[in-house]
């Protein structure tokens, strides 16, 4: 359990980093929405805890990638429930972003077509 943490062997005060850019993005998005008053942090932790408990029934979560998958799933469901982000619209935008990446030459910034 202890060795999984990169950096602690060399620096016991090393800050933990987000492992993937999207982990950081989904975290920041959630905090921003809460700070903007769209939901309270206790509302968030309750929903997130329920997802973690459900996912953890079948196998033990390791707190890495699986943790952020549960985070994203919770955020999508919470925003759908609050009527802030409709699943069909989100899905269409996801596909639009994918198409934009596939249509953009390598090395150029990717923009969503309006």
């Amino acid at each position: 359990m202890t060795g999984a943490d990169t950096g602690i062997a060399t620096d016991p005060l090393a800050a933990t980093r987000f492992e993937e850019p999207w982990h950081a993005q989904v975290f920041a998005l959630t905090v921003a929405l809460s700070e903007a008053g769209r939901f309270t942090w206790p509302e968030w932790t309750e929903a997130f805890g329920a997802t973690l408990a459900r996912h953890g029934k079948d196998r033990a979560l390791d707190g890495g990638e699986d943790y952020f998958h549960a985070w994203l799933e919770t955020l999508e469901a919470l925003l759908a429930r609050l009527g802030l982000a409709e699943p069909a619209v989100v899905e269409a935008l996801r596909d639009a972003w994918e198409a934009a990446y596939l249509a953009t030459p390598h090395g150029q910034p990717v923009h969503l077509k309006d």
């Binding site: 993937e20 850019p21 999207w22 993005q25 989904v26 998005l29 952020f68 998958h69 994203l72 999508e76 989100v90 899905e91 935008l93 996801r94 639009a96 972003w97 994918e98 990446y101 596939l102 249509a103 953009t104 030459p105 390598h106 090395g107 150029q108 990717v110």
Partner: peptide
């Protein structure tokens, strides 16, 4: 083309 981010990254972006 530009490197395609993984599915969850696209969903967060959406």
């Amino acid at each position: 083309h530009a490197l395609l981010p993984p599915d969850p990254a696209l969903r967060v972006r959406a």
